[in-house]
Design a protein around this nucleic acid. Structure first.
Lengths: 207, 207
DNA sequence: CAAGCAATGTGGACATTGACAACATTTATA
DNA sequence: TATAAATGTTGTCAATGTCCACATTGCTTG
């Protein structure tokens, strides 16, 4: 059943990344082992070391894959609401953030629970930054359209991030009294409505 | 240098807990090992099994210790502001939450990053609950004094929790652009001012 | 196009770990 | 006081991360 005919795999790095993501989804980041990943990729227990410095380096690459997907998820959700308020799009991005976290809780944990790993690729650090910039952009548009209070857009972006991150983390840790994804998202909607500092008179008018 | 003269330790369970908390603070939850804890407590590598089912059980007990300290920290901080607004006390509790997380980031991680462990003690599950009830109480008082919007106090407590939890987690993960605890706390204050759904005309009047 | 070097994969080794079983010592109870 | 229950110890095992030496392949350069 060996998928590989030649000595060299040809695309081992990608295969290891995919296998890692799947393994983490199954057993969690703690029970994740390098050797099991190698087994699943059909290579010896030492092959991964040709592509990743060590376990931490591989997990760093896994995290970066997560940030790419997260960015895309936020963009997609906001695109669905292209005909709505800027604030609706920002809220949509926030909900997409929570949705992603609920759909891939273990992957999400790898992205945020470990110390930021220095991936070999020097531009790797840009990937999480792009995720944040996505959020930042939505904030800026809201401010341009006077739907969010004026002020440092960076600060407001970090505020928005903190809110959805807190909801996501608590939901994953099962500390919120909501069972289904739908319930969590309803709560997230409530929090975003109440807590994004919208300008009075917008669609977010409280009460 | 054995601190122990008799075969039996006398208070090994507590000693293991303390050693664990210190070890985790030093090396983080990942590098934490049962055997090193045993070494530090001056007992054999198997002694811990007489007091904890397994590693996870010990970490669960460590987590509960954290929840006790967290509850106390919130109460203390609010007590300092006993002569202020109810909303100020709620904000104080929130800041105490963030402060605790920054002071013991690894301990905080044990409390929230692992699946909720079933500690043997059947009333152990009450400890995290008490931490939340502390927050819930501050919310209720705010509502009684018309400083927070009306509505389900539970929902508002979870909203408050989500906000401070998000800030704490992002700060620990070094995803916020703030270096010092003071900077993080200033940001936390900003977020709480902007995002707790205060009634108009209170001390939290926005802008 | 050939030779040799860099890249990639393998097998073996080692210290460390969590956990189990069997045994030792102490404390408490009947 | 005898004997059972608690508590601590030593021995063992499979699994893991990482290192090393070696094998195989692909690519470059003369």
């Amino acid at each position: 059943m060996s998928r590989r005919k030649s000595y060299h795999h040809g695309n081992l790095r990608e295969a290891l990344l995919e296998a890692s993501i799947r393994l983490i989804a199954e057993v969690g980041p703690t029970a994740f082992t390098l050797r099991e990943v190698a087994r699943r990729a059909g290579v010896s227990h030492n092959a991964p070391y040709r592509h990743f410095r060590d376990k931490e380096d591989l997990l760093g690459a896994v995290a970066n894959e997560g940030f790419k997907e997260l960015t895309q998820a936020m963009l997609d959700e906001a695109a669905l609401k292209s005909n709505r308020d800027a604030l609706d799009r920002l809220r949509g991005a926030g909900l997409a953030y929570v949705k992603f976290a609920l759909r891939r809780p273990e992957h999400f944990a790898v992205m945020f629970d470990a110390p930021i790993a220095k991936v070999d690729d020097p531009e790797a650090g840009e990937v999480p930054k792009r995720a944040f910039d996505t959020l930042l952009n939505f904030v800026k548009v809201c401010q341009d359209e006077r739907q969010l209070i004026a002020g440092d857009p960076l600060e407001l972006a970090f505020l928005s991030w903190s809110i959805v991150h807190g909801i996501a983390k608590l939901a994953i840790a099962r500390r919120l009294p909501y069972e289904s994804q739908a319930e969590v998202l309803k709560f997230a909607k409530f929090v975003l409505d109440q807590s994004l500092p919208a300008c009075p008179g917008t669609s977010a008018a409280k009460q």
